[in-house]
């Protein structure tokens, strides 16, 4: 299943990217080669040392929307820009896009020649009487294959992110694996597992109730519920390692592993701290109002996940993975 989903994500991603680029090309979404008329507000005129005009490009939201065929935004566009005049007379401009730049330009800058910078030529520049402003006609450098470039960049960025995440885990992994080892040697995990044996016996019938895997799983779930994700992942990986010791067929997920992951992907958490923090930052009058609803949603997810795991493991196609090869019909007869 993961094989299909994985390849589907990649193939659909590439096809949609090509499709979007073709659409952009046909509709000329980025207005390649079309001159845009705007007002240049002069802030610094060229001096002997510096041959560029520094200032802002001002354009009403309506004309910007009209030019690109977009819904007009709310505020007028003020984009810092520098215009340099070459001795031959041809002028070029350079704008560095920032947080205040229109989204469309930010999008264009992402796939421009140099990242976060848009360049182009100035076709004409007519100064007003006091030389404080000028009416300019500009043509941007051609912007093409935006999505394909974005897809390439994403693949490279995410590969690097994966390594960063893994490396970041090393220290915290070592800490919790060390602590867990001490707890194991001291027999502390046995105490915890004995308390919860009635529950774990049903959830993980294939795992002996006093096995260290049970202890690690309980600790992982407890850490997850408290929102201690730093501790939860190492404990969860420890649990997987212990479950793998019971795995007769290394490389294939056991029923217990799938059930454990179903609980984990349900993500039951008592305080959804991240969501609350974002709500508070957005100025909510009651950021914590979602605690109850989140617990309900996560409980639905967890119950459904565990039920699904338990039901799916009975399907012949998943059962055959752990059937003895010499007696292929035996398990099937019992069910």
């Amino acid at each position: 299943m993961l094989n299909y989903i994985w390849i589907a994500l990649i193939v659909i991603g590439l096809l949609v990217a090509v499709g979007n680029d073709v659409k952009d090309e046909i509709q000329n979404t980025y207005r390649n080669g079309v001159p845009l008329t705007a007002t240049f507000v002069v802030q610094k005129a060229p001096t002997a040392q510096r041959a560029t005009w520094e200032g802002e490009l001002a354009l009403s939201a309506e004309s910007f929307g009209q030019f690109y065929g977009l819904k007009p935004g709310e505020s007028e566009i003020r984009q810092p820009v520098s215009i340099s005049t070459a001795p031959s007379g041809a002028s070029t401009f350079l704008m560095v896009t920032g947080p205040s730049s229109p989204d469309h330009w930010k999008e264009m800058a992402k796939s421009a020649t140099s990242k976060d910078k848009l360049m182009g030529t100035v076709q004409s520049m007519k100064f007003s009487a006091d030389e404080a402003t000028a009416e300019v006609e500009i043509v941007f450098e051609p912007i093409r294959l935006v999505k394909l470039k974005a897809v390439t960049q994403a693949a490279l960025d995410y590969a690097a992110t994966a390594v960063t995440i893994a490396i970041g885990l090393i220290g915290i992994m070592a800490l919790w694996l060390g602590v867990m080892k001490v707890a194991e040697e001291a027999g502390l995990l046995k105490v915890v597992t004995r308390l919860l044996a009635p529950v774990t016996k049903r959830l993980f019938p294939d795992v002996p109730t006093d096995h260290p895997a049970i202890g690690a799983m309980i600790m992982n779930i407890a850490a997850n519920m408290l929102g201690l994700s730093n501790a939860a992942t190492p404990l969860g990986l420890k649990a997987m390692e212990e479950l793998n010791r019971l795995n007769p067929k290394v490389g294939t997920a056991t029923n217990a592993m799938v059930t454990f992951l179903a609980i984990n992907t349900g993500g039951l958490i008592l305080i959804p701290a991240t969501a609350i923090a974002v709500r508070a930052a957005a100025g909510s009058s009651n950021p914590g109002i979602i605690i109850g609803t989140s617990i309900f949603g996560a409980a639905c997810a967890t119950v459904a996940g565990v039920t699904a795991a338990k039901l799916l493991q009975r399907l012949p196609r998943y059962r055959k993975d752990f059937e003895p090869v010499s007696q292929p019909g035996k398990e099937g007869d019992n069910g």
Partner: peptide, 16 residues
């Protein structure tokens, strides 16, 4: 989680 124990055949984990 599966990566940490080198599990490649994830069986019914994705549907669940």
């Amino acid at each position: 989680y599966f990566g940490s124990v080198q599990v490649k055949n994830t069986r019914h984990a994705v549907p669940a």
